[in-house]
Nucleic acid binder design. Sequence first.
DNA 1: TCTGGGGTCCTAGGACCC
DNA 2: TCTGGGGTCCTAGGACCC
Length: 479
Amino acid sequence: MKLKADRLPGGPEEISYPPEALNQSLALVDCNNFYASCERVFNPKLNGQPIVVLSSNDACIIALSNEAKQFGIKVGEPLFEKRDIIKKNNIVVCSSNFNLYGDMSRRVMDLLSGFISDIEIYSIDEAFLNFSGHKKSGRPSRRGGTVGYSNAMNPPQGVGDPHEAVSSVNHSLTEYARTIRQTIQKWTGIPVSIGLARTKTLTKIASKLAKKSKKANGVLNLIDSPHLDRALEKVHVVDVWGVGIKSARKLIEKGIRNALQLRDASDNRIRHTMGVSGLRLVYELRGISCHALDNCPRPKKGILCSQSFGRKISDIAELKQAITAFVTNAAERLRKQKSAARHLTVFMLTGFSEDKQARKKQSLSIKLPAATNLSSELIRQAMKAVERIYQSGQSYKRAGVRFDDLVPSEQTQISLFDQAASAKTSRLMETVDILNDKLGSGSLRYATQGTIHPWKAKSEMVSPRYTTCWDELAEVLAK
DNA sequence: TCTGGGGTCCTAGGACCC
DNA sequence: TCTGGGGTCCTAGGACCC
């Protein structure tokens, strides 16, 4: 594909990029060490302490406080490999507590939405904000709010000399970001870093530098900044959003080591090394937006439930119990977003082999006779799949189920013959969902799930669900 | 003996993200 | 002894068609 300067990579050639691809003012708000920070909010004894937070099954380290990072521990490393360092340095170890993190995330995002309506919640601890419309404050946005700053904190609008106006608006944006940062810290206890720039990829870089730099004090504005090139030069190529370890190796081989060199590399070279995604990324580094802000949450395209077992499992009955539980969980989420699946995949993995690398994976994908979100039907199909791929004598350490090819549930085709029975099952599902929502997930279960779960994951060092469970509220002692 | 070419659709797997 | 879980997008290659 030949690219012209004013065409966006990956799109039809006749589409030139829209003017708004060039002059956006975006921000990325990124919570610092989010899980570790959540643990600290309700347990101030942890302030200043090194903390690591574990994945499900207490297996891997998935988050660290700054203090813990200093000991050279990295995200993704298995706990058992770091036991010595943890013990020696009195590092606090927490099992993950997603009830708590999810609720804290909601609080942060609610506050952000109060500041600006054009917001994309990108992950549990990050959101992109779009300030591009600030000169037209008051214009209705797609979400029904207004584009621009909230009234209480409307910054001065630039007037007079256009250059001065831009820099004045830009300055006020930085100040506004500081206000946001202070408010989040004060109201939720979560520290955040904010990066401002023309494209999402550049805001990622800005927020990363904001986090590191003492001078930036948590906010870095790279919009029209004379320091942009120097900033890009500081960022190693593997730290650029969208460059993983595989691409980084290839780029380094070609002498591209930092974000500045990546930005200035030729289109052909990048297209050849990293494909069209790489090209988009490089355009973003040049200030041309290829990843628009998406402020409208869309239904998932696939829904997955998988888990590593607390111990190895070789009994097919136990495997079936686990898979039934996974299907039930994923089907609940499927119905929640009002989708039905046309495709179901069951997979099972052995433990790691002795060379610590290869693990055997068996999987089977089934095209369902009709799109469905009924747990009973999905379980029936999944059980057939288990029977087909299960190998007696094999011991499994992880399994899962995935629904794909999702369609809106009202589009599902039901044969006339099945219509009455299916309507009845749908009503049953609705009731089960309502009750489980009220009484707690898993209160009503299919019998095949069983009542004893030897495959359940470990979670031995979990903190209380301070904000989402009445029995586990934080206690304050008054003396 | 000689063994098209272009198109579409589907799927598995790779790479990446948090 | 002990190696997470939930996603998205892209690509290559096979099957199939004319």
